[in-house]
Amino acid sequence: MTVAYHRRPVIWDIDYDAPAGELIAIVGPNGAGKSTLIKAALDLVPKVSGEVHVFGQPYEEQRSRVAYVPQRTSVDWDFPVSAQDVVAMGLYGKIGWFWPVSRKWRKEAREALDRVGLADFARRQISQLSGGQQQRVFLARALVQQADLYLMDEPFAGVDAATERAILQVLRDLRSTGKTALVVHHDLQTVADYFDHVLLLNMRLVASGPTTEVFTEENLRRTYGGRLALLDQVGTRLAEGQ
């Protein structure tokens, strides 16, 4: 797929088959298009070309099997809802139009909060949570969706150690139950420890495969060794020409 903002391609011709049942890291420098890739996969930004298949079928038909954990900065944390309310939002699809959030669903939301270690914070307004706790609330919201594919945008960004450990534990639990997670990750130190597969991205797919094979110094140098100047130049021409 190719995705463009203001007609200028941000990511070029990504062609990637994610292996099911693995933890996959999307790694790349700032501006490499990591978040864009996830958002394009979810149809949140328009694609220039390409399509997304989930478990062999078009994404639109498989929407309920995909859960999204956005970046923490994407919402207004002053919004008057509690942690439990936010988690319950993941269940709204299942609850359906018009029905209120009944006790059964609230219990489910609390259980998910418990899984990420926030059981005691269920009634707190979300602005009173620390950054890491907010991130875990988003994670819990994805968990209640009981999806098969999880797309996470920088869940480890700016979180404390306890959160990092909690997220990692959840990721491993997911894997052990056969789920797939695609995670935008910024910390090169931990990629090898946390993930089985890695997708190196810098405007285009530089390399992908099992972490042990792909996460090499050579590939990293290719990923982080500056953007391809020519790609930028052609991108500009495309934007001007169109």
């Binding site: 011709d13 062609d15 285009r204 797919l205 390399a207 020519l230 130049q233 052609v234 021409r237 020409g241």
Partner: peptide
């Protein structure tokens, strides 16, 4: 530079070729 199968190369090149001038 791209990790793409050979049969995927044509499509992009087809889209981009109109914008590649002598300099590029």
């Amino acid at each position: 530079h791209f990790e793409l199968p050979d049969d995927h190369l044509h499509e992009t090149a087809h889209r981009v070729e109109h914008f590649i001038d002598d300099d590029i």
